[in-house]
Simulated assay, not measured.
Amino acid sequence: MIKGLGGFGDMAKMMKAAKDMQDRMQKMQADLDTITVTGESGAGLVRATATAKGELTALDIDPSIFVPSEKEVVEDLILAAIKDAQRKAQDKMQSEMARISQELGLPADMKLPF
């Protein structure tokens, strides 16, 4: 005789939890496209804006730094601002992943997506 659903009930719960996790991961991936971070260098003379996925979306350069003899300094400031934005984007992505993991009751050190 079959007694109820037995292990199948647990399997259904696991499948639902997996589907919920997949839905949340897809939403988070979409959200990362809309979350922006701004990196800067030279005390704000150069600002780079990127999505939380690290895609550079804007670059703002104060015109006061455009002195021909300072070309290398300007280039260094631009690179530093971009790297700062990318680092902040990576940090934001990791914090969003950790938040989703916590909401799903997963271990804090579990790396998402699988």
Rank of each mutant, 00 (worst) to 15 (best):
M28F: 11
M110P: 07
T38R: 01
E40V: 01
Q86A: 09
F114M: 09
L104E: 11
D33F: 03
I61C: 00
G9A: 12
M110V: 10
T38I: 04
K53E: 02
T38V: 05
A50C: 01
T36H: 06
A48H: 00
L77R: 02
L45P: 01
P68Q: 02
V74I: 11
M11K: 13
F66N: 11
E55C: 02
T38S: 02
M110S: 06
R47N: 02
L104Q: 13
K83D: 13
F114W: 08
A85V: 05
E72K: 05
G39K: 00
V37I: 02
V67P: 05
L104P: 10
D84Q: 03
K71R: 15
E96C: 07
A80F: 05
V46S: 01
L45K: 09
M21K: 15
I2Y: 15
A52N: 01
T51D: 00
Q26D: 11
M25R: 04
I61W: 08
F114R: 11
I65H: 01
G42M: 06
I78M: 06
G42H: 02
M28E: 04
I35F: 09
L104A: 14
D33H: 05
V73H: 09
E70C: 01
D109E: 09
V37M: 00
L112F: 10
A12D: 11
A43E: 15
A17T: 15
G39A: 01
Q102S: 14
E70S: 15
M110E: 06
G6N: 15
D62M: 01
E55D: 12
K88V: 08
G39C: 00
T36D: 07
A12I: 13
D60E: 12
F8W: 07
A52I: 00
Q29D: 08
S64L: 08
S101R: 12
K83W: 13
K19T: 11
L59N: 05
A50W: 06
L56V: 04
I35C: 04
G54E: 06
L106W: 09
K27M: 11
P113D: 12
E70W: 02
F8L: 12
Q102W: 12
A30K: 07
F66Q: 12
R87N: 15
T34Q: 09
S101A: 13
D62F: 07
D109R: 03
D91F: 06
K111G: 08
I2M: 15
M11L: 10
M28H: 03
A17E: 15
A108I: 11
A12S: 11
D76F: 02
A85L: 04
K88W: 03
K83Y: 10
P107M: 05
L77K: 07
P68F: 03
A89D: 03
V37E: 01
L32D: 08
E103D: 05
I100M: 14
V67L: 04
S69Q: 12
A52V: 03
K13D: 15
E103Q: 10
Q22N: 15
D23H: 11
M1F: 14
A80L: 03
I78W: 04
E75S: 14
T57Y: 01
V46Y: 03
K27P: 11
Q26A: 13
E75H: 04
A85K: 03
K27Q: 10
M110K: 13
M25Y: 10
I65L: 00
S64Y: 09
K92Q: 09
G7D: 13
